[in-house]
Amino acid sequence: MTGADGFTLLLLLLWGALAGIDLVSVPQAMFSRPLVAGTVAGALLGDVGAGLRVGAVLELFALDVLPVGAVRYPDYGAAAVGAAAIAAGSPWELGLGVAVGIGLLLSAVGGWSLLALRRLNADAVGRHAAALRSGEPSVIRRLHLASIARDVVRSLLLAGLALGVAGVTLRWVRLDRGTAAALTIAAVGAAAASALGGAARGAGTGSRRRWLAAGGAVGTVLGVLVWGLL
């Protein structure tokens, strides 16, 4: 991101914000998935490869969480954009670990901002309780659109924060090659544990657990093949 021009930064900010709005508000089309958000951010920065890899690792982390019902969850969209901005333009082997670490922190901030947004929305509903009993659809419409506007502001702030943190990281964090590589390895290991742990929990007992084990066996064999082919 160090050499990115103003226009690219603006596009990144808008993409990060769109990923944020997509998570819960609209259109819920999976732009907020880290694999998608990270890849597009990498492409905008001219380094799709780094974006893909950062997105893939964060995607493995995201597989731990099922956004079931009303549960709180991290917001990986803007986080993946920030993480991709850190990794883009330098050898990904060295940038990935730091990028993922910052991405995880940003995703937690994003999850917290979502809680705050939901409270603000509830307050607005509470304030308009009497008007909602009037049966006038314009009250509903205004409340709804105002809530979406709130999420637009939240998502823009979050995307701005992500890019700011990415800039600070690129400017100030200097690691030797060995440490950078060790962090990348740790990030991949932890990500794999998250995906498998989440899958095991989600599978529960019974036939789904056997499907997971079968998949793991097939994946390990194919993984060894991939290793040999690369």
Binding site: L66, V68, G69, A70, V71, R201, G202, A203, G204, T205, G206, R208
Partner: peptide
């Protein structure tokens, strides 16, 4: 969802 997936699956 919370009941069926969140609790039901891990608790078997």
């Amino acid at each position: 969802g919370q009941v069926v997936i969140g609790w039901g699956r891990p608790l078997g």
